[in-house]
Write a protein that binds this DNA or RNA. Structure first.
Length: 285
DNA sequence: AACCAGGACACAA
DNA sequence: TTGTGTCATGGT
């Protein structure tokens, strides 16, 4: 029966704040020394502890795999960080981002969120995604006492929305992109579940068929939803950072930077990218 | 008050 | 291939 549930995951070095607010997911809010959001259509509250994460949710279930999978609690972070190159920038990033981890998100929510992310600040992406969920998402399972929470709207639901309805969620010129991608996914023209079985290049090629999805957004989805370790999203921050830190007084093009990312940062370049991104974005704050 | 934001796209040269 | 304008909205 539906009821409040709680558990705790043993984890070594997991910083919820750095992880949930580092621009990979957009639905987490800090609430009373913890973090609250929606995962798999369920309300979730997380609190960090010593060597563990305490989790609360609500519903009819006893297996927490859906959440441990999302949080990737089984990943040995130390082993990953050991594969990073040792230079002054990466050392600083690792020191600054202790406990930062990559999540494993739902492909559609991740894809749609990043279609909305183009040329937007993270706070605005959160606002747009929030509106979209409130207006078109299914009611999430949550305790009665709390304010209603909503799941991220499925592709078929968003495919039904008019462009005006989407624009009313403040997404501007991204509306036709989201509508078009939702339609293709809803029709099965792009098989999001099937992408998980492909190699990185084939997976990226599938995502690139979607309107509003270019190399950067495709790489975000490959990394944050499918867990391809070599996906290396190059946004404006990473672009400036790479040029400044590794190519002073040169003008490398995008292709060159992507090649560099694959040869220099090791087998978990995507992870290294997230460390650099979070470091560059928050070091002066 | 300008400047810019986890870009993509069409089109020019 | 590289460069530019455009798209919509709002934070800093």
């Amino acid at each position: 029966m539906k009821a409040p549930r709680e558990t705790s995951f043993p984890v070594e070095s997991f910083d919820l704040g750095a992880t949930l607010a580092s621009g990979q997911a957009f639905r987490w809010m800090p609430v009373n020394e913890g973090w609250e959001g929606v995962v798999a259509a369920r309300w979730v509250r997380l609190e960090g502890g010593l060597g563990k994460i305490h989790a609360q949710s609500f519903g009819d279930f006893s297996d927490w795999t859906w959440l441990s999978e999302y949080l990737q609690t089984q990943v040995n972070l130390r082993e990953i960080i050991q594969t990073f190159p040792r230079d002054s920038s990466m050392d600083a990033a690792v020191a600054h981002c202790a406990g930062l981890r990559l999540l494993r998100q739902d492909p559609w929510e991740c894809l749609a969120s990043f279609i909305l992310s183009s040329s937007k600040q993270i706070v605005q992406i959160q606002q747009i995604v929030g509106l979209l969920c409130e207006r078109y998402g299914e009611r999430a399972q949550a305790p009665e006492a709390r304010s209603p929470m909503f799941a991220f709207p499925a592709a078929p639901r968003l495919a039904q929305c008019s462009e005006a309805e989407l624009r009313a969620c403040k997404m501007g010129f991204r509306a036709p992109y989201l509508a078009g991608s939702a339609a293709m996914v809803a029709r099965g023209e792009v098989d999001l579940a099937g992408i998980a079985k492909l190699d990185v290049e084939s997976a990226r090629a599938q995502l690139l068929r979607l309107p509003g999805v270019g190399r950067k957004i495709a790489d975000c989805v490959l990394l944050f939803a499918y867990g391809f370790p070599s996906a290396f999203p190059i946004d404006v921050w990473i672009m400036k950072g790479l040029k400044q830190l590794y190519f002073p007084r040169k003008r490398p093009n995008l292709k060159r930077l992507h090649k560099f990312s694959q040869t220099y940062f090791g087998p978990h370049s995507g992870y290294a990218q997230q460390y650099l991104f979070h470091y560059l974005r928050t070091k002066d704050a």
